[in-house]
Nucleic acid binder design. Structure first.
Lengths: 208, 208
DNA sequence: GATTGTGAATAGATTCACAGCT
DNA sequence: AGCTGTGAATCTATTCACAATC
C-alpha cells in the first residue's frame, strides 16, 4: 500500500496503460469482474506483476474474487490522469507532424491537439484537421490562451533543443519528442524521446 | 569478452544505436578518437555503461587512449547489421502509414521501403513517394520477389494479428507494429510494438 | 599517466509463495 | 475455497573501483 505520489518506474507506468486497454476491451465485452490470473492468461501478461503493479496504488481488488472491471478501469484512468482532457500543441507540421495530427489516438477524448505550429512560412496558414498552422512565434501567446499542457516535437533534430526550451518558457509541462536527439531537460518539464529508427535498428539486429 | 551471438538486452541494444549516432556526429565534426568519459560528458551518458556495453562485443577500445571514432562507428554498424540495406514493406497506407513512408529515417541507405500495401480498394493504386500502393493479396508474390525482410504494420488494431500472421507466412523476418495491441508471435519473427498513446499517457501521469 | 575491460557491489525489477481477507 | 496483497527470493541491470594495458 502506498500513495499515488510515490515514484513509479516508467516500465510499471506503461504496464498500467496496457492494463487499462485490456480493461476497456473487457468492459465492452460485458465482463464485470476478472482475476489477475485470467487477465494474465487472456492478454499474455504476468499475474503476479499485475497484482504488484496495482497494489502499489492501494487495495484495488477484492480478495477471493478479483478486480471489478469498471471500477478498476475508472480508478486507473484517474490515477494516470486520463480522466480529463489534456490539451496538446504540435510543433512541426512536416510529414510526421501532420500524420500525428491525424493519428486516431488524438481524436479521442483524452488528448486533444489544440494548435499546430511551424517555422516555415510556406506551412504557416495551411490547415490540418481544421487547425490553421501558426508561426512558432505565436507559441508565447497561444499556449497560455489555449491552456495547453503537453507539447509534441516533430521538428528536425537541429531545432529540437531550442524548441524544447521555448516550450518550457511558454508554460508547457511535458513533452513528447520525435527528434532523434537526447534533450537537455529541466526536471519540471519531462521529455520522452521516441526515436523510430532505434526501433528499426533493434529489429535489424535480429536479422544478422 | 564474448561473441556477437550472445543474448543482449533490448535496453543495451538501443544504447548501441545511440552510441552509433553520437559517433557519426563526432566523425562529421572531425573527432578521430574519444574516451568513454568524454563521450559520456558530451552526450549525457554513463562512461561505465558505455565501456560495459562495448566490451560485450570484444575489445573495441585502446587502453590509455580511448576509442577510434571511425573504427568504432564501422564496427557498431556491422554488429548491429546496419552495414547493408534492409528492404522494408509497409502494410497500411492510412495516415500513419503514409507518414512513415515519408519519414526521413526511411530515406537513408539502411532501411528502404520497397513496397506499400493496403486492403482498401480506394487506396490501392494511389502513389506514395514513387510507390504504387498494392493490394495486400500481392504480399505473397511481392515479398519474395522484392527480397523484403522487415514489415511495418500500420493497420488498425483489429487487423494487426492477421496481418502479422500473413507476413510470417510470406517470409518477412521481423516486424515493427504500430497497432495498439500485443501480438502473438513466433520466435523466428520478432515483433516490436510501438504504441504512441502509451507514451502520451506516460507524460499525462506527470501532470497530475 | 591515462583509459579500457571487468569482477564485485549495488540498485532495480520480476517472480515466488504464502499469509490474510472475502 | 479462492484470490489479493506482500515480504522474501531471484533475476537483471547499472555503477563502482581497480588490475591490465597502452
Amino acid at each position: 500500500m502506498s500513495s499515488s505520489r510515490d515514484n513509479i518506474s516508467a516500465l510499471a507506468l506503461n504496464r498500467l496503460s496496457v492494463y487499462l486497454r485490456c480493461l476497456r476491451l473487457l468492459e465492452r465485452e460485458g465482463v464485470s469482474c476478472i482475476s489477475s490470473r485470467d487477465l494474465a492468461r487472456r492478454f499474455r501478461l504476468s499475474a503476479a506483476q499485475i497484482r504488484k503493479d496495482l497494489a502499489h496504488f492501494g487495495e484495488l481488488g477484492i480478495r477471493g474474487v478479483g478486480y471489478r472491471v469498471a471500477d478498476l478501469r475508472q480508478r486507473l484512468e484517474s490515477l494516470l490522469g486520463l480522466d480529463h482532457e489534456h490539451r496538446v500543441v504540435l510543433v512541426g507540421a512536416g510529414n510526421l507532424g501532420s500524420a500525428l495530427a491525424r493519428y486516431p489516438g488524438f481524436q479521442g477524448a483524452t488528448f486533444r491537439i489544440v494548435a499546430v505550429f511551424d517555422i516555415d512560412p510556406e506551412r504557416v496558414g495551411t490547415r490540418h484537421l481544421g487547425l490553421e498552422v501558426q508561426h512558432v512565434r505565436e507559441l508565447a501567446r497561444l499556449v497560455p490562451e489555449l491552456r495547453a499542457e503537453i507539447g509534441i516535437l516533430a521538428v528536425p533534430a537541429a531545432a529540437a533543443q531550442d524548441t524544447y526550451d521555448t516550450l518550457v518558457d511558454v508554460g508547457i509541462r511535458a513533452i513528447l519528442n520525435f527528434a532523434p536527439i537526447s534533450l537537455s531537460t529541466v526536471p519540471e518539464v519531462p521529455a520522452k524521446t521516441v526515436d523510430l529508427l532505434i526501433f528499426m535498428e533493434e529489429l535489424a539486429y535480429f536479422l544478422r
